Simulated assay, not measured.
Amino acid sequence: MRIDSFVDVLQTELTTTQYGQHPPELYDPIRYIMSLGGKRLRPLLTLMGTYLFTDDWEKAVRPALAVEVFHNFTLMHDDIMDQAPLRRGHLTVHEKWNPNTAILSGDVMLVNAFELMLNVEAGALKTVMTRFSRTAAEVCEGQQLDMNFETRWDVTETEYIDMIRLKTSVLLGFALELGGLIAGADAETTQLLYDAGVNVGIGFQLKDDLLDVYGDPAKFGKQVGGDIIANKKTFLLIEALEKGQGPLRSELDDWLRRTDFDKAEKVRAVTSIYDQLNIRQLTEQRIDDYFARGFDCFARIDADPARKAVLLDFVQQLIGRES
């Protein structure tokens, strides 16, 4: 089985699914954001998670789409909160229409996601809906924690890891878990799938933090150093604040307090502080640790090795990305 097979089936479903028609001002933004592309890794993980245990993996297509619709709902609302002008190189929904329309369209997307998830077979439906509801709430909890951190300078590594686990990783974990639930896998196996997704998801987010500072601008896909410019609480900044002492800590505090500065100069200065504190090496070690935990969970799953190889190859490709 080739990854392209999952991609083709998913793409067909994405382009043919109807979210509603009237009034068009409500549904056009949904079609718009769903057409902007993206890696589609969450629904693909669901399909591959189902394929691990059954040839009938296409029964997971609409529930997998539910995960993607939910993910894009969170992006639509996050963009409003962040006042972001662009999403994947295009105007965000609140910029193309207006914030009120984006809020309401996002609300309908959430409803659409739950409707799509109802396509799960009856035997697994209650468990799936319970887990989906819990995951949806956790994503919102993570977003609130992230907003709380904006006004705090004492965020710990443990708090940060828990925030990114909730905000980004639990949905990856659920995507894989969902595949196992649809295929009828046992509770131990679905837990391993979930744990694998969560740990790999934390690794992904930490790698994003790292690439924002040390990535190749030609490959990263956005401005390198953007987090430094914005004083964003990333793993790197949190560790630097914890480990920095004396003149280095004073210099870092000075750059964090400044409201008038040359962006390139600030990025160079803060990156230099990170270098002196070995923050890059520490971050790389944490990334490797979480990826290793994820692959340990995959290794403990009892499934056909050839089927598992398809999933592992896909995850390895994601780990190796630089954008």
Score class of each variant (00 low, 15 high):
Ala269Met: 02
Glu188Trp: 01
Lys243Gln: 15
Leu236Glu: 11
Gly215Lys: 02
Lys222Thr: 05
Ser272Cys: 06
Gly180Leu: 04
Arg258Ile: 02
Lys243Leu: 14
Thr189Pro: 05
Tyr274Gln: 04
Asn199Thr: 03
Asp216Val: 01
Lys233Cys: 08
Tyr194Leu: 11
Ala196Cys: 15
Ala187Val: 14
Val213Tyr: 02
Ala185Trp: 10
Tyr274Lys: 04
Leu171Asn: 04
Leu237Met: 14
Val213Ser: 02
Leu206Ser: 06
Lys266His: 06
Gln205Met: 10
Ala230Cys: 00
Arg249Ile: 02
Ala218Gln: 14
Ile273Arg: 04
Gln223Leu: 12
Val200Cys: 08
Leu256Glu: 06
Gly226Ala: 05
Gly197Lys: 04
Arg249Val: 01
Phe204Ala: 10
Lys266Asn: 08
Gly221Asn: 03
Asn199Glu: 07
Gln245His: 13
Phe204Val: 12
Thr234Ala: 03
Gln205Gly: 07
Asp216Met: 05
Thr271Lys: 15
Ala269Arg: 06
Lys232Ile: 08
Leu172His: 01
Gly246Gln: 02
Gly197Glu: 10
Val267Pro: 03
Asn231Pro: 08
Arg165Lys: 15
Arg257Thr: 05
Gln205Trp: 11
Ser250Met: 12
Leu252Cys: 07
Met163His: 13
Tyr274Gly: 07
Asp262Gln: 13
Ala196His: 08
Glu265Met: 08
Phe235Asn: 01
Leu211Arg: 07
Gly225His: 05
Gly221Met: 02
Asp216His: 11
Lys243Tyr: 08
Leu248Ile: 14
Gln205His: 09
Ala264Val: 13
Ser272Thr: 11
Lys167Ile: 11
Asp162Thr: 13
Phe235Asp: 00
Lys263Asn: 15
Phe220Tyr: 14
Arg257Gly: 14
Val170Gln: 05
Glu251Arg: 15
Asp195Thr: 13
Ile238Ser: 09
Asp227Leu: 12
Ser169Tyr: 11
Leu172Gln: 06
Leu166Asp: 04
Gly184Pro: 05
Gln245Thr: 15
Phe235Cys: 10
Ile164Phe: 09
Leu256Asn: 10
Gly203Cys: 09
Gln276Val: 01
Arg268Asn: 09
Asp262Leu: 07
Phe261Leu: 10
Glu251Thr: 10
Ala269Val: 02
Thr190Leu: 02
Lys167Thr: 11
Gln245Gly: 00
Arg268Tyr: 05
Gly244Cys: 03
Ala196Ser: 14
Arg257Ile: 00
Leu193Arg: 12
Lys222Met: 03
Leu211Ser: 04
Glu265Lys: 12
Leu181Asp: 02
Ala230Val: 00
Lys219Ala: 11
Asn231Val: 05
Leu210Arg: 10
Asp212Ile: 02
Leu176Gln: 05
Asp260Lys: 13
Ala264Ile: 10
Leu248His: 03
Ala185Phe: 08
Thr168His: 07
Leu236Arg: 04
Leu237Gln: 09
Leu241Glu: 15
Asp253Ile: 05
Phe220Leu: 12
Val213Thr: 15
Gly225Leu: 06
Arg258Phe: 06
Ala230Asn: 14
Gln245Trp: 00
Gly203Tyr: 06
Gly226Gln: 04
Tyr194Gly: 00
Gly197Met: 07
Tyr194Pro: 00
Leu248Gly: 03
Arg257Leu: 13
Gly203His: 08
Lys266Phe: 07
Arg165Gln: 14
Ile202Trp: 12
Leu172Ser: 06
Asp195Tyr: 03
Asp262His: 11
Leu211Lys: 04
Ile229Lys: 12
Ala240His: 01
Phe235Ile: 13
Asp253Tyr: 03
Glu242Leu: 03
